[in-house]
């Protein structure tokens, strides 16, 4: 039996598909930025000596790293409202979950990047009389950020893939739109192939970039 491939019907759904792509990319960008900011704050706070600060943050990081995003997503959407007494829109729950999940990984990447800077650099800055914030801004972060870029890009790639889980909360991302189109046309083969191709087209340049940066920094 040979299957008659026919992608032409998809053209009439290009509006839906475009919305899906925008949601996927938009959620990735917004949660990556928010996650990076939250992760950065966690990383800096974890450099503190006080255990009352570092232990809860470590617990936060481990909870989000050691549970599946899907579970976090449904927990925040269905369970968190019971705790805080406020209904969350699917998009809000999705934003919170992906941001915090990303933050837990970003925090470790940033902390690792900062920790990888030779203590001699800190000594040199301190010996000049630089205060902590100036030393961070002028000496440590410029060097650390360079080392962090490849793992950060990799994390953004994962973050984009994770947005496909938003479909379980009926957020109209690429995969959710695909499901809609499939139920209207009964052509899962073409629809899901196209969805996969779109993900690939978005992500392949990103992973290539990450590899390139890794190779350049390794030299």
């Amino acid at each position: 039996m040979t299957y008659e491939w026919d992608f032409s019907f998809l053209l009439q759904y290009k509006g839906l598909i475009a919305i899906g792509a925008l949601y996927t990319i938009g959620f990735t960008i917004v949660t990556a930025i928010a996650g990076f900011v939250v992760g950065g704050l966690i990383a800096v706070a974890r450099l503190a000596d006080a255990r009352v600060v570092t232990l809860p943050l470590l617990a936060f990081i481990e909870i989000f790293r050691c549970t599946p995003v899907l579970v976090q997503l449904v927990w925040i959407y269905y369970a968190l409202p019971i705790v805080i007494g406020v209904e969350l829109k699917p998009a809000t729950a999705a934003f919170i979950a992906l941001t915090l999940y990303g933050a837990s990984f970003f925090a470790e990447i940033i902390r690792g990047g900062i920790a990888s800077i030779d203590t001699g650099q800190w000594d040199a800055g301190r010996a000049l009389g630089m205060r902590r914030a100036a030393l961070m801004r002028r000496v440590v972060l410029p060097q650390a950020l360079k080392r962090m870029i490849p793992p950060l890009v990799n994390q953004v790639v994962l973050q984009l893939k994770n947005t496909s889980l938003l479909s379980v909360l009926a957020v109209p991302d690429l995969l959710y739109q695909g499901q809609l189109i499939t139920s209207a046309t009964y052509k899962p083969l073409e629809v899901y192939t196209m969805i996969a191709v779109i993900y690939f087209i978005i992500l392949f340049p990103l992973t290539t970039l990450a590899h390139g940066l890794e190779r350049r920094l390794a030299r």
Partner: peptide, 11 residues
């Protein structure tokens, strides 16, 4: 920082 700025160090 103020104290250290008056002392030069070479490592």
């Amino acid at each position: 920082a103020a104290f250290r700025s008056t002392v030069g160090m070479v490592f």
